[in-house]
């Protein structure tokens, strides 16, 4: 399909092996989730714990992108990232607690700050 190949690119059958390994390495956790969910009572506190872990994990992802960004985002200033998120949270709190318009405000503020800087 594409003519571009890195020097170390695996050839021929290695492709399939690499992809199969990626598939298995990822799906194993989803498969375990399906096995587990049948054993957990939907009303049990264990689900609250699972929910708290997933919530904290995604919050940590946000914090990592804001405080330790990689790639393009690393070329922007921390102040602009925090200011934009602050405006979005203010919009959420004051503008009827709606997610969509708050995200729109966040990225709009961020875009304007990038144009200015």
């Amino acid at each position: 399909m594409s003519g571009m190949h890195a020097a170390s690119w695996p050839g021929g059958g290695m492709w399939i092996t690499v992809l199969a390994a990626g598939l298995a390495a990822t799906y194993v956790w989803r498969w375990l989730g399906v096995l587990l969910v049948k054993r957990i009572d939907p009303r049990s506190p264990a689900l609250l714990l699972v929910r708290a872990v997933a919530t904290a994990l995604v919050a940590a992802l946000v914090a990592r992108m804001v405080f330790f960004p990689s790639g393009l985002l690393a070329q922007t200033s921390l102040a602009t990232r925090l200011a934009a998120l602050g405006c979005g949270l203010a919009m959420w709190r004051l503008g009827g607690r709606k997610v969509e318009p708050s995200v729109a405000v966040t990225v709009a503020v961020f875009f304007i700050l990038q144009l200015l800087s």
Binding site: A59, M65, R81, L89
Partner: peptide, 23 residues
């Protein structure tokens, strides 16, 4: 560049507000 970097910023913005909105 300002547009490209704003596209990347969609991700933390959305996840933060979706978490807050769903809390």
């Amino acid at each position: 560049k300002p547009l490209a970097v704003t596209l990347v910023f969609f991700t933390p913005s959305f996840f933060l507000l979706a978490l807050v909105g769903g809390a």
